[in-house]
Write a protein that binds this DNA or RNA. Structure first.
Lengths: 241, 241
DNA sequence: CGACTGGTTGATGACAGTCAACTGATGTGG
DNA sequence: CCACATCAGTTGACTGTCATCAACCAGTCG
């Protein structure tokens, strides 16, 4: 893995291709930045998928989020210019650097309104994540799956059949559970007929019921899938949040 | 409890006194805003303490943070102008409204740099909180206590002897544990000689060891307090983060 | 004074973490 | 292309942390 700390390196690395002055491509498994790096601004993900992680005080790595088109990352660098998290690309990504100067200076060409809006969206997503962590494992998983699917729908992609860009280990860390627990919970949802899974390929069979679980509806209740078998109930409906 | 949704109400409520055009006082137990309120901007806490909460999908209330002098709240309203959280004042607070227009418009009198800095600080604090939620209960508690103490120190207040502004129920919710668990964990730390507690008054006796627990050091190890009894090891040292 | 809110303590059990063994994918060098 | 190593994920058995339920106590307030 290469390691990016400055724009100079961006231009010299053969894994990172400048598209224009502000946007560049980072390929799978490459670092965008690491904890402690001094950044020139914050980043916007234009396409692909990036994971952010942090180290706990005792050195364990924890995933704090997965970011896709439109998301802002490295917001923590607003505090002091240094990144407090590590960014690794999961799916080859097009990234824009938004320099601090652009954010602070009254550059009319920069859409401050959209920036602030996105900041709020990111903030809300993070809060949702935080809140889910004190919920039962099955609920956390159902929440993630429906939210991920919704994210795809919002970006105009197929929402009921997709490939997870992250490993189970990463997802388990993000959801605050052991890898084994994640594996068992996924199997549980499969057995309930709510989804199919092979490797990282997921097919949602009963979105409504998954949403119900995510919202705290108990999985022991009668499944919508059982009560109303078929595809009518499992269309890739858009979740509002 | 009264409920503030607009500046009009701010001016009419006898619990809220305008100090200047931007700053006002909200007294204990009053709402600053509630989930769903349309806001005119985001708020800055100048003094006092404010708690933020959200409702889970199944209607349970969860505390997402406690905010003190310097902290920004209602950042989620940046997304769409509506608050996704509820703010209740715990200690009579002086609050400034920072209108969206001020943030977006190129108002030279507004310190955008300081604003962005504080945004990053808030963001980091939230990430810390999120990460702690998958740690053991004792560790979460030790983390909160040391962090709270550090927050007091940073604001020039006495850091090793203070009063908790929130109820145990609120703190338990924030830390993602049951009230009973919190009660037992506090007692556990007391029994280890790390702190004293009567009602909501806390006295830290061994900050270093609390920090060690917060960082993942096991409480079964020999306590610094036991190894090196006395006050020399329990001064209100400032934690760097 | 009773009714509340806030907090403590004990008994019990469930959810999920840990340990361990194993299977299946993916990748690498000879 | 195979042999091997490595990573990713599965499954089972066991254990422990912590949530739940319940009873109880201490302030506070109308």
């Amino acid at each position: 893995m290469t390691h990016l700390t400055s724009k100079t390196q961006i231009n010299t690395s053969n894994n990172i291709h400048a598209i224009d002055s502000n946007s560049f491509v980072v390929s799978e498994r490459k670092f965008l930045f690491q904890m402690g790096d001094q950044l020139d601004g914050i980043y916007r993900v234009n396409s692909g998928c990036v994971k952010l992680s942090r180290n706990t005080a005792d050195g364990e790595k924890q995933i704090i989020g997965f970011y896709m088109a439109g998301d802002l990352i490295a917001l923590d660098a607003l505090a002091d210019g240094f990144s407090h998290s590590t960014a690794v690309v999961l799916e080859t990504a097009n990234i824009s650097l938004i320099p601090f100067a652009t954010i602070l200076n009254q550059d009319a060409k920069f859409d401050h309104h959209a920036f602030m809006h996105q900041l709020g969206v990111n903030y809300n997503n993070d809060n949702d994540h935080t809140m889910m962590l004190s919920q039962p494992a099955e609920r956390r998983l159902a929440w993630f799956i429906t939210k991920f699917s919704d994210g795809l729908a919002k970006r105009g992609m197929i929402a009921n059949k997709f490939r997870m860009p992250m490993t189970g280990t990463d997802l388990a860390s993000y959801l605050g559970m052991a890898l084994e627990t994640l594996s068992r919970e996924i199997r549980g949802l499969c057995k309930q007929g709510l989804l199919n899974k092979s490797n990282r390929n997921i097919e949602l069979l009963d979105m409504k019921y998954l949403i119900k679980i995510a919202a705290g509806g108990n999985a022991d209740q009668e499944s919508f899938a059982n009560a109303n078998a078929g595809w009518e109930t499992s269309t890739n409906r858009t979740i509002s949040y």
